[in-house]
Measured scan of single mutants.
Amino acid sequence: GFTKEQQRLGIPKDPRQWTETHVRDWVMWAVNEFSLKGVDFQKFCMNGAALCALGKDCFLELAPDFVGDILWEHLEILQKE
């Protein structure tokens, strides 16, 4: 899971503390893990605080249908851990 990747890359547990690099690493991991298609990494050029502050509607505009939902749900789980 993502926990191993977080440990390997030194990504903080709390997504709100992520840098732009951490956000990119997470999106890249999720794309590979969940076989997601059509993700534009440029749209995720922000730090974790900005990403978490978007709200669901704005977040879902960053990625194609269903893909955004998967990313959003995973981000929500990470914020609760």
Rank of each mutant, 00 (worst) to 15 (best):
K13S: 14
W72I: 00
V67E: 15
Q17A: 14
A30E: 12
V23E: 00
A50I: 07
L75F: 12
E76M: 15
A50E: 14
C58E: 15
D40W: 02
V27P: 01
H74R: 07
D57Y: 05
L78R: 03
L36M: 05
D57S: 13
K4F: 15
C52Q: 04
E5H: 10
F44K: 00
L9V: 09
L75A: 01
D25H: 15
A53E: 15
H22K: 00
K37G: 11
F2N: 08
I77A: 14
R16N: 15
K13H: 12
T21A: 14
K4L: 10
L78F: 05
F34P: 01
C45K: 11
D25N: 12
G10I: 07
V39L: 08
C52D: 02
E33M: 05
Q42N: 11
F34Y: 13
H22I: 01
M46L: 10
L36D: 02
T3S: 14
I70F: 08
T3C: 10
F41V: 15
N32Y: 05
E33R: 12
L36W: 06
G55D: 15
D40E: 11
L75G: 00
W29Q: 03
K43C: 07
I77F: 13
D40L: 04
S35E: 13
L54N: 06
R8L: 10
T19P: 00
H74Y: 04
A50P: 02
E33F: 09
R8D: 10
P12N: 04
F44E: 02
P15A: 05
M46Y: 07
A30R: 03
P15L: 06
G68E: 00
L78W: 06
E5D: 07
L9Y: 08
T19V: 03
V67A: 11
M28I: 14
D69Q: 12
S35Q: 15
W26E: 01
G68H: 03
Q6Y: 11
G1L: 08
T21N: 15
A30F: 07
R16S: 10
H22E: 11
E76L: 10
E20S: 12
P15V: 10
I11R: 09
W18R: 02
D69I: 12
K37W: 07
W29Y: 07
W72Q: 02
R8Q: 10
V67T: 11
G55Y: 04
E20V: 13
F66M: 12
D65C: 11
F44T: 02
V67S: 14
F66A: 14
V67Q: 11
L71K: 00
G38P: 08
T3E: 14
